[in-house]
Measured scan of single mutants.
Amino acid sequence: MLDDRARMEAAKKEKVEQILAEFQLQEEDLKKVMRRMQKEMDRGLRLETHEEASVKMLPTYVRSTPEGSEVGDFLSLDLGGTNFRVMLVKVGEGEEGQWSVKTKHQMYSIPEDAMTGTAEMLFDYISECISDFLDKHQMKHKKLPLGFTFSFPVRHEDIDKGILLNWTKGFKASGAEGNNVVGLLRDAIKRRGDFEMDVVAMVNDTVATMISCYYEDHQCEVGMIVGTGCNACYMEEMQNVELVEGDEGRMCVNTEWGAFGDSGELDEFLLEYDRLVDESSANPGQQLYEKLIGGKYMGELVRLVLLRLVDENLLFHGEASEQLRTRGAFETRFVSQVESDTGDRKQIYNILSTLGLRPSTTDCDIVRRACESVSTRAAHMCSAGLAGVINRMRESRSEDVMRITVGVDGSVYKLHPSFKERFHASVRRLTPSCEITFIESEEGSGRGAALVSAVACKKACMLGQ
């Protein structure tokens, strides 16, 4: 009897593995994704193909990295998701002549009506938060230079001027797309009239992360975010950046690689679950690469896999709870928690219980395998993109072996128990001629924006502006 049951459990697990095998990517698959990513990057950089390229390769006008001589107080704003952060950054000489960066910050959550109302409502709310922060720190009387981390696709015309191309991540505030974001912020500050600010720089969160990590390690020339969304930036040779005049030196390019796949480059790798996630998203047909990796989508992918296993009578005796059938019910943090389970399955059992399920031991094991399959594919897909960037940098610099540091931020990278190990191992397999160091950014977005502002202020002083 026991043997029969054991055989049935083994057969069930084997069927589960057959279904989950769809998520496995072979090294040849990853090399294919990497080569296609490089081709799209090239198209994004070139003037004649930029418009139709899915990977936009947006110039950021960040050319210099901090040298350690900029000092002063800077205000930093960070808008990239449902939370908005205001930070005071003091850049100065530390002990023994070292450079020191001290920060104080406060988080504000953005109400739904500000995210989806008008641009005026959104930026009025942001300036209200700045006003509140300055009151708390008794700094209303000071006109501070301000660095703005704005983590949406922007076409820069200068370091302090950028046109919002399109909202992502659930934002829909009308009247912002096609307009200068810094102008919208300046107008809102003017409307309030109770404080003055000098907006000197606007950067993407990947750029802010790279600059913040450069402060720790001067070989950091790539910034990457794996959180709600997924994106990367890197220092490109100016001669390859056709959208900006000049051939000397390097400029940081914001790849906006989340949109890779929007022209069909990933079609052969998309599964039924991916198509369902895409169809029910706020932007169907867009940001397809990001939807395979980002935390906004990972939990939902797992939920759809679990429903398939229920329908195949391989999980929960073929019956799903009402909660499990509800879109968004299986949160991405559950994926991390399930994979963090120590082996007694308590954590998995508790999560499934909150979803109205009474799982068996085998159910718990199957749910864990589903989570591992989805998150491992995410790590491997992400590795193909980064390997594409790094191999490109090595080739354009004609280096036999390139040493490089990548600064990384984002909740999936930082909080998932195995993502970074799987990701690092896969990147290294795909970049055999590179020695890569990964560092995690601390308060990256805010500190990085302030350091970019410090560079901009120093330049302005040198130019006598």
Score class of each variant (00 low, 15 high):
residue 323 Q to H: 13
residue 412 V to K: 06
residue 405 T to C: 15
residue 418 S to W: 12
residue 451 L to G: 05
residue 317 H to A: 13
residue 6 A to W: 12
residue 404 I to A: 07
residue 329 A to E: 09
residue 50 H to F: 06
residue 114 A to T: 12
residue 53 A to Q: 05
residue 437 T to V: 11
residue 317 H to E: 07
residue 218 H to D: 15
residue 259 A to L: 03
residue 24 Q to I: 06
residue 294 G to D: 00
residue 86 V to Q: 01
residue 78 D to F: 01
residue 248 E to C: 06
residue 29 D to G: 07
residue 35 R to G: 08
residue 135 D to Q: 09
residue 61 Y to L: 03
residue 355 L to E: 05
residue 84 F to H: 04
residue 315 L to N: 11
residue 57 M to V: 02
residue 28 E to N: 10
residue 421 E to H: 12
residue 294 G to V: 02
residue 250 R to Y: 12
residue 62 V to N: 03
residue 65 T to S: 13
residue 291 K to C: 00
residue 289 Y to K: 00
residue 183 G to S: 06
residue 5 R to M: 05
residue 374 V to Q: 06
residue 97 G to A: 13
residue 182 V to G: 00
residue 407 G to E: 00
residue 435 E to D: 13
residue 41 M to W: 02
residue 432 P to G: 11
residue 69 S to N: 15
residue 406 V to G: 00
residue 172 K to D: 02
residue 396 S to E: 12
residue 308 R to F: 12
residue 97 G to N: 03
residue 252 C to E: 04
residue 298 M to R: 01
residue 175 G to S: 00
residue 393 M to K: 14
residue 385 G to Y: 04
residue 313 N to A: 12
residue 354 T to V: 15
residue 55 V to D: 10
residue 312 E to D: 14
residue 298 M to F: 08
residue 33 V to W: 00
residue 289 Y to S: 04
residue 448 G to T: 05
residue 178 G to M: 03
residue 442 E to A: 09
residue 275 R to D: 15
residue 137 H to K: 07
residue 424 H to E: 13
residue 272 E to I: 09
residue 116 T to H: 09
residue 91 V to P: 05
residue 268 E to I: 10
residue 273 Y to K: 06
residue 145 P to S: 15
residue 177 E to I: 15
residue 402 M to D: 14
residue 101 V to S: 10
residue 90 K to R: 14
residue 40 E to W: 02
residue 259 A to K: 09
residue 6 A to L: 11
residue 42 D to R: 12
residue 118 T to K: 02
residue 43 R to W: 09
residue 323 Q to I: 12
residue 68 G to I: 15
residue 208 A to R: 11
residue 81 G to N: 02
residue 152 F to W: 00
residue 283 N to C: 07
residue 308 R to V: 09
residue 63 R to K: 14
residue 441 S to T: 13
residue 99 W to R: 15
residue 64 S to N: 15
residue 400 D to A: 14
residue 113 D to E: 12
residue 70 E to S: 06
residue 223 G to M: 01
residue 382 C to D: 00
residue 98 Q to K: 13
residue 268 E to A: 14
residue 464 G to S: 11
residue 435 E to F: 10
residue 392 R to G: 09
residue 209 T to W: 00
residue 276 L to Q: 06
residue 130 I to T: 00
residue 294 G to T: 03
residue 276 L to S: 10
residue 95 E to A: 10
residue 220 C to W: 00
residue 16 V to C: 09
residue 283 N to R: 14
residue 309 L to N: 11
residue 38 Q to D: 08
residue 379 A to N: 04
residue 76 S to H: 03
residue 404 I to Y: 09
residue 120 E to R: 07
residue 76 S to N: 02
residue 324 L to S: 11
residue 373 S to D: 06
residue 360 S to W: 07
residue 419 F to C: 04
residue 360 S to V: 11
residue 8 M to E: 10
residue 259 A to T: 07
residue 331 E to M: 00
residue 116 T to P: 01
residue 406 V to Y: 02
residue 272 E to N: 08
residue 257 W to A: 04
residue 365 D to W: 12
residue 63 R to V: 11
residue 192 R to W: 04
residue 307 L to K: 07
residue 283 N to S: 08
residue 214 Y to F: 15
residue 52 E to P: 11
residue 286 Q to A: 13
residue 56 K to W: 03
residue 64 S to G: 15
residue 3 D to K: 08
residue 180 N to I: 09
residue 251 M to H: 15
residue 310 V to G: 10
residue 350 N to I: 12
residue 26 Q to P: 14
residue 229 G to R: 02
residue 228 T to G: 00
residue 98 Q to R: 13
residue 335 V to W: 03
residue 310 V to C: 08
residue 455 V to R: 15
residue 107 M to T: 06
residue 291 K to F: 00
residue 158 D to L: 02
residue 412 V to L: 08
residue 118 T to H: 05
residue 31 K to L: 14
residue 442 E to C: 15
residue 464 G to Y: 10
residue 30 L to N: 11
residue 261 G to H: 01
residue 429 R to C: 09
residue 436 I to M: 09
residue 452 V to T: 14
residue 375 S to T: 11
residue 132 D to Q: 02
residue 200 V to F: 03
residue 298 M to K: 05
residue 169 K to G: 02
residue 69 S to W: 14
residue 81 G to R: 01
residue 303 R to P: 04
residue 256 E to T: 05
residue 347 Q to W: 13
residue 362 T to D: 13
residue 73 D to G: 06
residue 90 K to A: 14
residue 430 L to I: 10
residue 132 D to M: 09
residue 119 A to G: 01
residue 460 A to Y: 15
residue 300 E to I: 12
residue 65 T to K: 14
residue 319 E to A: 09
residue 5 R to T: 10
residue 279 E to R: 15
residue 130 I to E: 02
residue 188 A to H: 00
residue 424 H to T: 09
residue 26 Q to V: 10
residue 245 E to T: 10
residue 46 R to G: 13
residue 268 E to D: 09
residue 236 E to L: 04
residue 158 D to Y: 02
residue 387 A to G: 08
residue 112 E to N: 11
residue 385 G to R: 02
residue 17 E to Q: 07
residue 162 G to E: 02
residue 168 T to R: 06
residue 138 Q to G: 07
residue 294 G to C: 04
residue 100 S to E: 14
residue 189 I to D: 03
residue 459 K to R: 15
residue 194 D to R: 03
residue 241 V to C: 02
residue 65 T to Y: 11
residue 12 K to A: 10
residue 66 P to K: 12
residue 213 C to S: 08
residue 47 L to Q: 09
residue 461 C to E: 13
residue 417 P to I: 12
residue 185 L to K: 00
residue 241 V to I: 14
residue 168 T to V: 03
residue 381 M to K: 03
residue 255 T to A: 08
residue 115 M to N: 01
residue 300 E to T: 06
residue 69 S to Y: 10
residue 235 M to Q: 15
residue 115 M to P: 02
residue 244 V to Y: 00
residue 168 T to A: 02
residue 27 E to F: 11
residue 464 G to E: 13
residue 33 V to N: 04
residue 91 V to T: 07
residue 291 K to T: 07
residue 9 E to P: 14
residue 174 S to C: 01
residue 275 R to Q: 15
residue 103 T to I: 02
residue 438 F to Q: 06
residue 15 K to M: 15
residue 104 K to D: 14
residue 401 V to A: 11
residue 122 L to Y: 06
residue 340 S to Y: 10
residue 406 V to M: 08
residue 363 D to Q: 15
residue 171 F to I: 05
residue 68 G to P: 15
residue 194 D to W: 00
residue 28 E to M: 14
residue 411 S to A: 06
residue 287 Q to F: 02
residue 464 G to W: 08
residue 200 V to C: 12
residue 175 G to M: 00
residue 101 V to D: 08
residue 296 K to I: 09
residue 445 S to I: 02
residue 327 R to D: 15
residue 361 T to M: 11
residue 72 G to R: 05
residue 213 C to N: 15
residue 273 Y to M: 05
residue 123 F to E: 06
residue 413 Y to P: 03
residue 55 V to Q: 02
residue 330 F to L: 15
residue 462 M to H: 13
residue 393 M to T: 09
residue 360 S to Q: 09
residue 120 E to M: 10
residue 420 K to D: 06
residue 281 S to F: 09
residue 183 G to Y: 04
residue 322 E to W: 10
residue 327 R to F: 09
residue 61 Y to C: 01
residue 447 R to K: 10
residue 397 R to Y: 12
residue 415 L to T: 04
residue 113 D to Y: 13
residue 295 G to W: 00
residue 36 R to P: 00
residue 374 V to E: 01
residue 282 A to H: 05
residue 181 V to E: 02
residue 200 V to M: 04
residue 388 G to M: 04
residue 137 H to F: 08
residue 359 P to I: 11
residue 464 G to A: 12
residue 94 G to M: 13
residue 281 S to I: 01
residue 247 D to K: 14
residue 270 L to I: 12
residue 313 N to T: 08
residue 375 S to K: 01
residue 198 D to H: 08
residue 414 K to Q: 11
residue 429 R to P: 11
residue 121 M to F: 09
residue 254 N to G: 03
